[in-house]
Nucleic acid binder design. Structure first.
Length: 433
RNA sequence: UGGGGUGUAGGUCAACUGGCAGACCGUCCGGCUGUUAACCGGAAAGUUGGUGGUUCGAGUCCACCCGCCCCAGCCA
């Protein structure tokens, strides 16, 4: 039992030698005297060939006990074999069952409905498509860290349990000792702004929660957000950072995850068109554009999903819509000096109908204007005391944005719904597994 | 919350105008020495989401309830 072990992706280095590979059975075929085991270990697919008159009788007998998803170890000589799924084959001499699997495994190599798949998400994760998505998500996460690390950003982890602070949309609440209610964070931005005054350039990377009864392909109740905040950046610097980041992420996946994109049958020609500079469209021009295309949107309205689709349809790369009316946006955005009806902000709309993947703005750094906005919105002034203090003690121009991780991964992968791009999605009607 | 769908075997779906509940995949049994979602022969498998109603007769029509999906709003 001193045979070396190998993962399937490493088998090329063992060609002609005896190795042991451990993994899970995906498929079984038998022709009476020759049998095939197809297995996976997360790095690839491997075919084991068992020939009745070349193996010990107990090995042959053990084959007939195998079932889909049984965890096994097979031992034998490795070789490249073009006829084998995955291109790897082992001539089996030893076969051990590590963990048997009953016959009622709920996921077959066939089509299933989404409800069945999500009910069995803990198994669905094992399928090749889901593995490919997870690897692309991982690549994007790593690329985000690399991008900011190389640019001298500090990562700051902000609290998930907060007092009521943030945006206006739905909050999940829970009892918190003698402090009354705590709320799950909807954003780390306000804390990020405090950290930017301490470290200059920071980003957050963590989960956020929205108790919205949203049931669309673009929404989750728990999703991951990346929120950079940069001292001395204005709204134009902010947009340049956004397009630098997004184009970096797309290039990185194109470069390192070709196999996974192929598994997903992603049209990579669309991704290759994502090059800087992205399109910049003033809000007022966006309104003119969608009205020309038949939308009934008026100046002052927020843009709906339909309007976003009309805008994006004209371009092959992401589009910034800039400088929305004050009323349509959050209280912390800086008034636009060139048009005080509007604020210095931008939404980045992804191509191909994936919607808003980034919302960003220059922040209001004037104490009196910010206080005025807080009162205008009817927000609890005392809860924002520390946030206002940032404008009182050494206020500074700064800007930042929030990148929705699942929307970004969903767009790059081309998935129909973002629930596939997170391991265990949380939605209005889905809390388990 | 509003609009539109949908619910039939373990899974994916069919069943005309209301007239014997079906196919494929999977599973089980048997066969097969290079299979690729193998193939060939046989078998098991159903309270048609629930409750009530119309009818000689309801998977099908009606009412209510439940679950889910899609779209919108909210946003990332």
């Amino acid at each position: 039992m001193s045979t070396p072990t190998a993962r399937i992706a490493e088998l090329a280095a063992h060609t002609g030698h005896v190795v042991t590979v451990r993994g899970w059975v995906t498929h079984l075929r038998s022709s009476g005297k020759i049998a095939f085991i197809v297995m996976r270990d997360g790095t690839g697919l491997l075919q084991g060939v068992v020939v009745k008159n070349q193996v010990a009788p107990e090995v042959w007998a053990r084959f007939s006990e195998l079932t889909q998803e049984a965890c096994i170890a097979i031992t034998g000589e490795a070789k490249a074999e073009p006829r084998a799924p995955g291109g790897n084959e082992i001539q089996v001499s030893g076969l051990e069952v590590i963990g048997p699997s009953p016959l009622d495994y709920p996921i077959q190599p066939k089509e299933h409905g989404i409800e069945h798949l999500l009910d069995h998400r803990h198994f669905w994760l094992r399928s090749p498509r889901q593995v490919a998505i997870a690897k692309i998500r991982h690549e994007i996460e790593q690329a985000i860290h690399d991008f900011f690390y190389e640019r001298g950003f500090l990562r700051v982890d902000t609290p998930l349990l907060t007092a009521a602070i943030g945006e206006r949309s739905g909050l999940f609440s829970t009892e918190y000792f003698d402090e009354g209610n705590a709320y799950l964070a909807q954003t780390g931005q306000l804390y990020g702004e405090a950290a930017a005054a301490a470290f200059g350039k920071i980003y957050t990377f963590g989960p956020t929660f929205r108790a919205e009864k949203s049931k669309t392909r673009r929404h989750l109740t728990e999703f991951w957000m990346i929120e950079p905040e940069v001292a001395f950046n204005d709204t134009h610097d902010n947009m340049r950072l956004q397009e630098d980041l997004v184009s970096f992420l797309v290039e990185r996946v194109l470069e390192r995850r070709q196999a996974e994109l192929a598994e997903l049958e992603r049209d990579v020609s669309k991704l290759k068109q994502v090059v800087r500079p992205f399109v910049r469209l003033d809000y007022s021009d966006a309104i003119t554009l969608v009205r020309r295309k038949g939308s009934s949107a008026k100046w002052g309205d927020d843009l709906g999903a339909e309007d976003e689709a009309l805008i994006v349809a004209d371009y092959d790369r992401p589009v910034f819509v800039m400088n929305y009316p004050k009323e349509a946006k959050a209280f912390y955005m800086k008034e636009n000096p060139a048009d005080p009806r509007t604020v210095l902000c931008d939404d980045m709309l992804a191509p191909e109908g994936y919607g808003e993947i980034i919302g960003g703005s220059q922040r209001e750094d004037d104490y009196d204007k910010l206080l005025h906005r807080i009162r205008e919105e009817g927000l609890p002034e005392d809860a924002y005391g520390w946030y206002l203090d940032l404008r009182k003690y050494g206020t500074f121009p700064h800007a930042g944005f929030g990148l929705g991780l699942e929307r970004t991964v969903g767009w790059i992968c081309g998935t129909p719904h973002i629930r596939e791009v997170i391991a265990f999605p949380r939605m209005m009607h889905r809390l388990r597994p």
